[in-house]
Structure formats: structure tokens, C-alpha cells
Design a protein around this nucleic acid. Structure first.
Lengths: 244, 244
DNA sequence: TGTACATCAGTGAACGCGCGTTCACTGATGTAC
DNA sequence: TGTACATCAGTGAACGCGCGTTCACTGATGTAC
């Protein structure tokens, strides 16, 4: 046994005390550094200062550890999105944009979770527990889209909330995965990923006919802005929003 | 040596004839099946029916093979996007949508290329040749966006083409990466990925003020739709003013 | 409070495996004359 | 057209390495009495 390991064991005693948690943390660090593909069970044990056999007391195999991380990731993701949505306060559009920013922030600040959840190749839909957790997170976006859809200008068909949610999800994921990732595969960008996504979502919402300039504090904007007669084939408010 | 290998060699003779190409094809198959992370140099040699040492005559190492695949992928991608764009015929919006569909089709039909290009963790920006190829492909989208931007209704500022291109790219990548991938990590979707992306792009273009119902066959739509008067009460400058 | 004992969470040695890589080699091919 | 020879593109054996996994074991902890 190496001196260092001897040392670490002397400090913590024979029993680790919280090895399961330590392994999860170690794996998170490794995934953030090298991607889910590059992370090994043995490496996680090493980082936790424990023999290669020890992890088997807590996880059946490498895949179970990876799933645990994805699971936890979806839960934290859901929490952050829920907090950002804040039940649509102060108004639906503002809250909706905040959800978009929260999405990106999560991808940026928790690259390991994001990787395990969306880029590890883990077949999420094949694991019921994982799928449920993933769905709960997505449902935050869907519920927000639902509320937004209910604001559709009078006389116009409401956009399907499910479709809106999928659109927003794909935008956020696309930006996160190309430009906001934590590793060397991140593409350079002439602006911040947040700005890119925010503009994208706003233009999209405008394309659906939603007024994207905020109404009076705390109040929903009027359903049909005066300058855009309903039935118009062009979104109300013209193609541009506020001045820079 | 196994009987099968003996057999294969008997058929093809001592020299393979086109091993480099065979290795690239083998790697493509393996990546499509197991992802770029799961593909090994030895496996590729095995599939090509050749000893594990043979590949070293053609590639310095596994990474060089992977880069070659990404390189070739970007080239084919560029070709397909260029063909889809068809120099903006019959009209800019129609051609633009066709580019979006071509993007998705590529991701779906060439999962191995797509994976190597965008999901393998290969640091594209760190390899000049690769970066150049990647940029050439992206430039097809950018040039198309440029043409589209030039159609902006009179009296209103043109949307920055670069930003539009990045938006379209992130939408297409998001949909491809979540819903249109070739492996088990594909998410289920209540519609086709093509439909999802097409709707997304159309709504987005509307949000920019482009008329998305086509004009007369082969003609560009009028620059200023009558129902969107310039001098609208919503000032220009775009939704990408700073977030609060 | 002390002791005996069950249970738990680690150890470290061992194993098989496949990968990447190197090496001297050899069979096939192309070419100069 | 034949032959000698250089070059090329493979072979197969060998090596070290790290991983995943199993196993009998052992030290620490908790608990019944």
C-alpha cells in the first residue's frame, strides 16, 4: 500500500463512513473532467482513497453508479427549473425566460450531471426510475409552456403546449451541448450562450404571437397588442423587440 | 490464426488492397453501433479482417482515425447542406427550410459521422484542419442566413446573420441530438423529428418578421408585408438587448 | 458497565481480459535494366 | 521477356497496462444480556 493511502486511512480509520457519497462525488469530478465515457469504476475508488473492491459494497457495477448520478442530476435539474419558474411570477413570459437561463446555467455549472443525463449514452427510456425522473424535469418546462399557451392572443389557435415545450427543450439542449459544455469540445462563440439562447427563445415566442416586451409589473400583458390585428400572418409588434 | 481469418486472407491475398478505406468503414460501423467512446482500434482491425498491428501502417493512432472520420463527415455534411440550399432556389425561405431538413437527415442517416463530429468529445477547435472543415460546413448555413437577413422588411434593422445561423444550428443540433440519434439514447417523441424541427424553424422565422407562407412559385415574397407597418410601436433592436 | 457476538464495510491478492503498441519478420508488388 | 532488387503492406508474437470482478479475510461497530 502506498504511503499516501496509508496516511489517508490513518486519518479516516478502517471504515470510510460515507463511501457511497464519496464515490458519487468522485465520479462527478471524473465525468466533468473526462466525460462519462472516460470514467472508470476503479478510478472512482482510487479518488475516494479506497481499494478497487470497495465500491461493490454500494453499487452493483459501473452502470448503476452512472445511473445514480443521472437520477440525482434529473432531480436537481427539476428543482432548479421549478425554482426558476416560480409558478410564473411576476409574469409568464419573464418566468419562462428565467427557466431557459436556468437550463443553461445547469448545463454550465453541472457539466458532469448534464453529461450523465444527456450525453452518456445511458438509455434513459429503458430505465423506469430514470425515465420518471427525466419526465418530472421535463414536465416543469411543459407546465410552463401550458401556461404560456393559455395566453395565446384571442382569435388565434393556441399553440400545442407539448410542442412548445419540446421546441424550448431542443433549443436549450442545442446551445448547451454545442456552446456551454464544460469540456474541450465546447465550440467558440462570439457571444455568451445565455444571450444566444435568450434571443432565440424570444424570437421564437414572438413567432407564436406572444408579446415579448413585459407588461406592467406583476400583471400579464394584454392578450392582443393594439398594433397587431389578430389574424395577421405576421407576429404582432413587428419583427424586432426593444432597442439595444 | 482462426479458420475464418485464414479464409478471408485466402480470398483477398496477403495484401488487403484498400485497408485504409476498410478501416474507416469498419470504424463507422462500430461508432454507429456503440458510439465513438466504445470504438477501439483493435476492433476496427478485427472487422477489417486484419491483424491488430496493421492499422498502424495507415493511422498514427486511434485519435487520428477518429479525426479522419470527423473530417470526412464535415465534408459530406457540407456537400449535403450545399445541395439542399441550392443557392436559394426557388425562394429563400423554401430553400432555408430544406437546409434544416437536410441537417436532420444527415444526423439520422449518418449517426456515426454525426457522433464523431459533434459528440465524440474530439476538440474540433484544437485541430486546424478539422476546424476549417467544420467552418466550411457551418458557412453554408451562415450564407443562407445572410441571404435571408437581406430580405428583412424595409426600414427595420437586419437581424445579424451570424446569430440567425447559430440559432438554426442549435435548433437542428438539439433536435438531432435528443430525438434523431441512431442509438439507444434516443428520446421518444410524439411526432417526427423533422416535423418538430420544421415547425420550430418556421415559428422562429416568423418571430423575425419573415413571411413564412410562400409567395408565388419561384418569386421572393414582398420585402414588407402590408400588415406589419414600419414604425411599429415596438422599437427595433431585437430581443437580444441585455437581460434584466 | 462489561462482555460476547453478529453484522457490516472495508482490504489486498488474484484472475482473466482486451487494448495499445512495438518489433523483427515476410510475402507481394513494382520497376530498372 | 526475364531477373534482381527495393519498397511496401501486411503478420504474429510479445510486452506492459489498467480494468472489472471475485474471494477469503479482518477490523470496527452496534447490540443483547
Amino acid at each position: 500500500m502506498s504511503w499516501r493511502k496509508e496516511q489517508r486511512r490513518a486519518e479516516r480509520g478502517y471504515h470510510h463512513g460515507n463511501l457511497k457519497e464519496a464515490l458519487l462525488q468522485a465520479a462527478l469530478g471524473l465525468i466533468a473532467e473526462k466525460g462519462a465515457a472516460g470514467f472508470t469504476f476503479a478510478d472512482a475508488a482510487r479518488m475516494a482513497g479506497v481499494s478497487a473492491a470497495a465500491p461493490y459494497r454500494h453499487f452493483r457495477d459501473r452502470d448503476e453508479l452512472l445511473s445514480s448520478i443521472a437520477q440525482r442530476g434529473f432531480e436537481q435539474f427539476e428543482q432548479r427549473l421549478t425554482a426558476a419558474w416560480d409558478d410564473g411570477r411576476p409574469d409568464t413570459v419573464t418566468a419562462f425566460e428565467r427557466v431557459g437561463r436556468a437550463y443553461l446555467a445547469f448545463a454550465r455549472e453541472e457539466p458532469a450531471f448534464y453529461n450523465a443525463m444527456f450525453e452518456s449514452g445511458l438509455p434513459v427510456d429503458a430505465n423506469p426510475t430514470l425515465q420518471a425522473a427525466s419526465e418530472r424535469a421535463f414536465n416543469v418546462i411543459r407546465a410552463a409552456a401550458e401556461r404560456l399557451a393559455a395566453l395565446a392572443p384571442q382569435g388565434q389557435p393556441r399553440p400545442p403546449a407539448m410542442m412548445m415545450a419540446l421546441h424550448i427543450w431542443s433549443m436549450a439542449h442545442g446551445v448547451a451541448s454545442l456552446f456551454s459544455r464544460g469540456d474541450a469540445a465546447r465550440r467558440k462563440l462570439p457571444m455568451s450562450p445565455d444571450e444566444l439562447l435568450e434571443a432565440e427563445v424570444l424570437i421564437y415566442l414572438r413567432g407564436l404571437g406572444f408579446p415579448t416586451d413585459r407588461g406592467p409589473q406583476g400583471a400579464e400583458p394584454p392578450p392582443v397588442p393594439p398594433e397587431a390585428p389578430s389574424g395577421s400572418s405576421v407576429p404582432p409588434g413587428g419583427p424586432w423587440g426593444k432597442p439595444k
